[in-house]
Structure formats: C-alpha cells, structure tokens
Design a protein around this nucleic acid. Structure first.
Lengths: 201, 201
DNA sequence: GTCTATAAAGCGATAGAC
DNA sequence: GTCTATCGCTTTATAGAC
C-alpha cells in the first residue's frame, strides 16, 4: 500500500516536472504573454486540464519556475564562490560559468531576460528579485573581500561595487551575445573583469 | 490650395506621431503582447481604426517605433562622442547620459529592454539590431582610440573590447537600476568604467 | 482619415466525464 | 489526475458609414 502511494506520488511529481520543463522552454521562446497554457501543455504531451490540476493559474506556473530558477542560480553562485583560491582564479571561473550558461543553455538565458522584464513591471516579483540579487551581491562581495585581503589587493572600487559590476556585466553581455553572437569578442567577460578588478601596477 | 494640402498632411503626420508616442508608452508598460492595439489607440485619444489607417499591423507599428528609437540612440551616441576632449571626460559624459536616460525617461529604458527581447526572438529584427550595435561599437571604438593616442594611454583591452564593455555595462546596470533602484551604488557606471579603462599606475 | 460594428480566432479558466 | 467540451472574454484585423 505504501509502495502504491509512493508510485502515484512519483508519477504526479513527474508530470509536474515535465510541465515545468515545458513551461521553461515555451516561456523562454515566446515570452509570458506569447506562451499560451495550451502550447505549454501540448509541448509536454498533456492537455490544458493537466496544467490546471497542478497550478492555480498561468501566472502561478510562471512564478513556480521563477522560484526554481532563482534557487538554482543562487546555488551556482555559491558553488563558484566556495571553491576559490585567488581573485584571478575567481574571475576565471566566473568567465567559464558565464560561457557554459550562454552556450549550453540558451533557453535559461532567454528565460532569465523574460523574468527580468516581468520583474520590472510587477511590483511583488520585483521586490523578490531585488532581495535575491542583493543577497547574491553580498555573497560575492564577501568572497571578493576575503580574496583581496589574502592577496593584499587594493582598488578604488568597493567590493560591493565590484559585485554589482560583475553581475551587471554578465547580464549586459549576455544580451549582446544573443543578438550579435559572433561579433562580440570571445571571453570578453573575464577579460573586462580582470581589467576592472585587477588593475595593473 | 497648397496651403490646405499642407495642413491636412500636417494633421495626418500629427496623428501618426501621437499614435507612435502612445505606442512607445504602452509597449513599454505592457510589453509587445500585453499592449493591445485598442489600448494604444485609446491612450492616444483615437479608435482602433485610426491605427490601421496609419500602420499595416501591430507589428508594423512596433517596428516603426523600433526604427525611430534606433536612429535616436545612434544620434545621441554620436553627439556624446563628438564633443569629447579626454578619455576621462568621455566616460563622465557617458555616465551622465546614462543617468539622465534612466531617471528622466524610464519608459524608453523599458522599451529598450522590450526591443532587445524581441530582437532575441525575431531573426530579421535581430539582424538589424546586430548591425546597428556593431556600428555603434565601431564609432565608440574609434573615438576611444583617438582619445587614447592623444593621452598616450595603454590597456590590455583593445578599443573594440572597451566599446563592447561600455555598452554592455550600460544595459546590464540599467536592468538592476529598475529592479533594485536604491540599492545599486550611485554613479557606479562611470566609476566602473574609469576603473576598467583608466587603470591607475 | 477616423469612426462603429463585426468577423474570426485565440486566450485563461472551469465543468464534468472517466 | 487527466481528458474533452465549453464559457466568457479579449485579441487582431476588416468592412462600411461618414
């Protein structure tokens, strides 16, 4: 009996996950308004009814993947931060992380943009994002501070300002990568960061 | 007779301009899919019919303001570039330009984001934007080169890489300004650019 | 050129069968 | 839990009056 219930719960979770994955793809491709519940369901191999059995509304579904994406991004950042030995190594890893996300996972990048635009318009979501971003900035800021004190580094930028710049440049460059692709200089992200944070003396 | 025709043409142009301005506001506020032709017309004080008398479709209207915005942005960049005496002065002016656009004209910034997302999805628009951006980059690159040779400056970044970074950071920081507003350090744009391009020695 | 009316299609969401 | 059918509303776009 316990076994049977577990299987059913697993099946339910699996459907939910399939719907989430389809939603990720569809929202990224067509945007929030452009992606219909019908299309999302169809792409996952279900009907509209299945979506409304798992989520209260289209917006609810959207916010669910927003939540998922938020946690994943924060987790990635933490992983990157925790394994650093030097500031230079840190920036290199950030550059690699940046490129792997852009190239292997175009969908997530476009979805990220969609979230950003959504957050700019919806106050509640904007506030949530703002909090998450600020926390990421603080994490990065602390990590930089630790690395800098270890290396006796100095800069006219505060570590907080550096952290904001790192994340801003990531987003800004990502946009251009998708629009101009081959025209954007390779590994500019890492190079620009090195230049900004490790000023030659 | 000539006078009468001119007046009519002027009226036609005026209506068209009013519709364009309303479209700018509405698309920025609600996004491409979220903004209906009805709302755009109503906000301008007209009915839907008037819109279709001036534009073939909703997308046509969208592309018309995209064109207008493109030209304006390029013009602004040129104006900023042409009046520079030193690299430091150039970066300061860019910082001022950045802030005036963000604060006085939130609408245009959000519209800019909307365009970017649209361009990321529509191949024809993407190509147009790519060309325009590349031209802007070249303009900025040349301006920096001139200023640097005048001041005997050196850097590990090429002027081309600098230009891409300048525009990327502008977009990336703009996003965060709208989401986190008061938490983003003031005048970070100019400061970060100074640090990146004018490395202390 | 601008209006009102309307067509035709798509949307989010719900109801009821299974 | 998932389906089909359907409601009620909004959308883009067109037709015809003025």
């Amino acid at each position: 009996m316990a076994r049977r219930r577990l299987t059913q719960e697993e099946r339910k979770k699996e459907t939910r996950q399939l719907l989430l994955e389809s939603a990720v793809e569809t929202f990224a491709q067509l945007g929030f308004h452009g992606a219909s519940v019908d299309k999302i369901a169809e792409y996952a191999g279900f009907s509209k009814g299945a979506v409304y059995a798992h989520f209260n509304s289209k917006e609810d579904l959207f916010l669910a993947i927003l939540e998922q994406q938020m946690l994943l991004h924060v987790e990635n950042i933490h992983q990157v931060i925790d394994q650093q030995h030097s500031l230079s190594h840190f920036l290199e890893t950030m550059d690699e992380y940046f490129h792997s996300v852009r190239q292997e996972n175009r969908t997530w990048s476009m979805l990220n943009m969609e979230f950003l635009l959504y957050a700019m318009r919806e106050e509640s979501v904007r506030h949530k994002w703002s909090t998450m971003i600020t926390e990421s900035v603080e994490q990065i800021s602390k990590a930089i501070e630790k690395l800098m004190s270890k290396e006796n580094h100095e800069s006219t930028l505060s570590t907080n300002e550096m952290a904001w710049t790192i994340l801003s440049l990531e987003n800004g460059l990502a946009i251009f990568y998708y629009i101009s692709e081959d025209r954007v200089p390779l590994h500019l992200y890492g190079k620009a960061l090195q230049n900004m944070l490790l000023s030659p003396r």
